[in-house]
Design a protein around this nucleic acid. Structure first.
Lengths: 243, 243
DNA sequence: ATGGTGGACTGAGGCAGATCAGTCCGACCC
DNA sequence: GGGTCGGACTGATCTGCCTCAGTCCACCAT
């Protein structure tokens, strides 16, 4: 295993020990590099025969829109994340994917993905693991919205983002750059933008975190962790499970 | 493909066309048949080296408990469902699994599962697909709790359950047997039990559904679908994607 | 300079759903 | 026949968060 592989390959390698051959197959998966402008959907609900993407830079969000226009953001993807897996496995996409910032991503064609699984089967297990980790995040998000109040929920979200960014080298325990508006936060947390604003002020006044000018600064990590009942084990892994 | 295979094998076969050899591998996966009494955890948060199960009969629920004792139910599993996949892929379980009724299930050992993936690799892709379908349900659940009000959310949940049960032959368009108490419903929907009771009464008074004495009767399917903005495509599949 | 736009921020008032504190009924157990 | 227990159900009150209706400021286009 050497350093020339993509962040995505490194992530999978953390779960399933990969051979040079398998690393090569992963790197071949990266198809045409595409650039997307912020705000223009990459994948649209109901669209068929969609490609998947591996994110190289920028942030995107996956969301659903209800008939009355309400939006629920399900997750954000950051560099190194795989996106649109479900749009490929089911033939039609059940959600929208929109860049939050300008984004660079490699396209992965459905046919290439399925061919890779049959040629290098351990990669199918590795992607299964990655998908399970994503599911664990969605589950934690569900628990937040269902049973944490607005303040706890916001704290939990900021902690989770921080932990994820740290794993890919884009942040530290004390803070990170975050391009999300309070409107995006609101649609993520199931709150109104007005209330998000008040909650962020409270967290600031409590000396826990500040989120201003696109920068999250964590001032009291322990306090936040306790408030949010945050347990980061669902984001971690303790070395390859499959040798 | 013949009729002797388990419901689980049939479910996977709907996505990936399986050979007799692959069906046989799936059937071998079913290990020791176990029986669990209602209310006694099958898998506990933080437990390691857990087995997974394939549900033969009965209902179970997966949930998380927060530090303050609040519970959020993430999903119910019904016969034919695979449960505890994440407990196996991560070595430690991030959630609890509890039988709602008396349950019969076949144990699947982590080592058998991983061995099956390497011997019959198409099954890894098939399980990946099943896991993605589960994720799609969790996502829909998240959207419900985040952006639907109590009545819409309850209606959506009852419709989803009905659609799932119908797929495994345990219900019809007009109703189904449902062993869930209003407390379980409350912890699923992110509501209080008191409010669930009132919402169920409203749905009854509107002539949409009744849920009484363990039986859900759907009186106005179209009305419910419209109220809940229910789109069942995320539960469906239109024949094998992988030939 | 001037107007337009998007995001952060605020106060006032309203409401959906929580909480508290019960009643009632059927199942099960001495 | 009384005791207990779990689940459905109810009324009264409280509150977290929403909605409405703004202001202010930075940035951009004309």
């Amino acid at each position: 295993m050497n350093a020339i592989h993509s962040p995505f390959a490194r992530k999978l390698g953390a779960f399933v020990s990969l051979s040079e051959n398998e690393y090569a197959a992963l790197d071949r998966l990266h198809g045409r590099r595409k650039v997307f402008a912020a705000g223009l959907d990459m994948v649209h609900q109901g669209q068929t025969n969609q490609a998947a993407y591996i994110l190289a830079s920028g942030w995107v969000c996956s969301y659903k829109i209800l008939a009355d226009g309400a939006r629920q953001i399900v997750d954000f993807q950051i560099p190194g994340d795989f996106l649109g897996l479900r749009s490929v496995l089911f033939r039609t996409s059940d959600h929208n994917i929109e860049p939050v910032t300008k984004v660079e991503a490699s396209e992965v064609l459905a046919s290439d993905l399925l061919a890779t699984f049959s040629e290098t089967p351990r990669l199918a297990t590795a992607v299964l693991w990655a998908a399970s980790r994503d599911e664990a995040m969605v589950v934690e998000h569900l628990v937040s919205i269902g049973r944490r109040d607005a303040k706890e929920r916001t704290a939990h979200f900021l902690l989770e983002l921080g932990a994820r960014l740290k794993l890919v080298g884009l942040g530290s325990a004390s803070g990170y750059a975050c391009p999300l508006s309070q409107y995006l936060l609101a649609d993520t947390l199931g709150l109104s933008a007005v209330h998000v604003n008040r909650v962020l002020r409270e967290l600031r006044e409590d000396g826990l975190v500040t989120f201003q000018h696109g920068q999250v600064e964590i001032h009291d990590l322990d306090g936040l962790v306790e408030l949010a009942d945050f347990d980061k084990t669902y984001l971690d892994h303790d070395g390859p499970l499959l040798k």
